[in-house]
Nucleic acid binder design. Structure first.
Length: 477
RNA sequence: CGGGGCGUAGCGCAGUCCGGUUAGCGCGCUUGGUUCGGGACCAAGAAGUCGGAGGUUCAAAUCCUCUCGCCCCGACCA
């Protein structure tokens, strides 16, 4: 595993200082565990946002915004929900210099405030479905934080939809987990397993929680996105009913789904190497950096001019930067842009100018390719896609090489420690057996696959009872 | 909250055991020069409440007491 990608904040801030630096805030304990997202890091988040937003719009969703504060009485309406979230909530007790009559919870998630609003919006089947997404920050007072993976405050999107039928809500839940799968694989270049959580791991208040699980370079699992089928739980809690075509009153069916800044952590821990970040080209805010090389001032002028001429037609078609800084030598610049993960570097020196060529350098492999200046932009666009595909293939090969079937519990306990990885094991469905995994191995059931894979007969690895389905087990973040 | 560790320049650290010149090193920063196809070099320079308070002493970064803060491991989790 690459040294710099251990999930420790000081490693991140040291290695990827320009992406995100939480240390700036850590001097005060009250804000420990929060993030400072510097411009380069925020640019990456904006790329993630933009792509997800496109995918949400394509599936018929609209953006909206709801309050940060949730009255305590709202939180209390859904029993499982409040039980799950109350212990990790920040609560406001004072406002305007006075003690509040009712406490306000800083949202850990917005189901309750949104469903209290949906009640006023929904009367008829004609008002359905409601397909809304919110980009927001939420607060969860975790005891232990890890930069990107588990911060006290994080940025995310949360979709909240309301439907007339159970079937439609389930369809929506599955549609959105599929959107997340596509985003993870096609944009983050991170292969994922799609599955459903066991009851023990379900979202508080959900009937089913679907998830995508990715493998990091240390072979631990990271839950990268979730989509919940909420049934009628929130509709009942907030008394949200509609009149169907036959004129009868029914409770509304609900879903919610979300991904967070944790995706940046997933990106780093999937692709980065000892030279720093590797950003998949489709998400890279800066796709190409050009480093002109010169020996003296007059040559500097001519090389930079040549770089500008070469890229004249690129504006608006690709994001690029010409590194004209005089205080650093080329080697320093090469290293710096590698650390920042820019997918392609172009070296342009006097020799290249003479030969009408440039040198392209791939961030993922370090390979240097000399190409003619003619037709450069299409060549780069092709190479970006090649890098994107190759990052995915590399990550997938790594995951597959570290994913095993396992049928013996003793052997499982050994192998989960060394060499580690993902294990497909038979499980009878009994929560007691699930608890055994956790206690004896510190591994958890990540999910039960929903695509029909690993559906085979066997015996529960813990108790030996018959099982028709293998489940994914791994240590996780 | 339990168990470890650490606070000395912007960052990373040495010095503390065994008190004693003007508190040091690397990186970074400033200025000048030479360099420039893989993290340049030389010279000069700026930058410190040694986490804080109290105590012991002729003398404290160093010893004692108290205190504040941070990091790591565990219980919680997107």
């Amino acid at each position: 595993m690459a040294k710099g990608i251990t999930p420790r904040s000081e490693d991140y801030s040291r290695w990827y200082l320009d992406v995100i630096d939480a240390a700036d805030l850590a001097e005060h304990s009250a804000v420990r565990g929060c993030m400072v997202i510097k411009p380069n890091g925020y640019a990456l988040w904006e790329q993630i946002q933009a792509q997800l937003d496109r995918m949400f719009k394509e599936t018929g969703h609209q953006n909206a915004y709801f309050p940060l504060f949730i009255p305590e009485s709202f939180m209390r309406k859904e029993a499982e929900h409040v039980e799950g979230f109350a212990p990790e909530c920040a609560v406001v007790t004072h406002g305007g210099g006075k003690e509040l009559e009712e406490k306000l919870y800083v949202r850990p998630t917005s189901e309750t405030i949104i469903w209290s609003t949906y009640k006023k919006w929904i009367q008829s089947y004609r008002d359905l479905p409601i397909l809304i997404n919110q980009w927001a920050n939420v607060v969860r007072w975790e005891m232990r934080t890890r930069l990107f993976l588990r911060t006290l405050e994080f940025l995310w999107q949360e979709g909240h939809t309301a439907h007339a039928t159970k079937e439609e809500a389930i369809e929506e839940t599955l549609r959105m987990i599929e959107v997340y799968r596509r985003f993870a694989e096609d944009y983050l270049a991170a292969p994922v397993f799609v599955g459903v959580k066991t009851p023990a791991e379900r979202f508080a208040g959900a009937l089913d929680t679907y998830c995508i699980e990715a493998m990091m370079q240390d072979k631990k699992a990271l839950q990268a996105g979730t989509s919940h089928f909420l049934g009628q739980n929130f509709a009942k809690a907030f008394d949200v009913m509609f009149q169907n075509e036959a004129g009868q009153l029914e409770y509304v069916w609900a879903t919610s789904w979300g991904v967070s800044t944790r995706l940046i952590g997933a990106l780093i821990m999937t692709h980065s190497d000892d030279n720093g970040l590797v950003i998949p080209p489709r998400l890279a805010p800066l796709k190409v950096v050009i480093v002109p090389i010169w020996k003296d001032d007059s040559q500097r002028e001519s090389m930079c001019a040549a770089a500008r001429r070469l890229t004249e037609s690129w504006h608006g078609r690709i994001t690029f930067k010409i590194d004209e800084r005089d205080q650093y030598r080329p080697g320093y610049k090469f290293n710096e842009w590698e650390k920042r993960g820019v997918p392609i570097r172009i070296e342009l020196g006097p020799k290249d100018l003479e030969a009408d060529q440039v040198v392209l350098v791939r961030r993922d492999t370090g390979e240097k390719i000399t190409v003619p200046q003619d037709g450069l932009l299409p060549r780069i666009e092709t190479l970006l896609e090649e890098i994107q595909a190759s990052l995915f293939q590399r990550a997938k090969a790594f995951r597959d090489a570290n994913t095993f079937d396992e049928d013996d519990f003793e052997s499982f306990k050994r192998r989960i420690e060394e060499p580690g990885g993902f294990f497909w094991v038979h499980w009878c469905g009994n929560p007691a057996c699930e608890a055994q995994f956790q206690e004896t191995s510190k591994a958890t059931i990540r999910c039960v696959p929903i695509d029909g894979s690993k559906r085979e007969s066997g015996k529960c690895i813990v108790c030996g009872a018959p099982s028709q389905q293998r489940v994914l087990v791994a240590k996780s973040y």
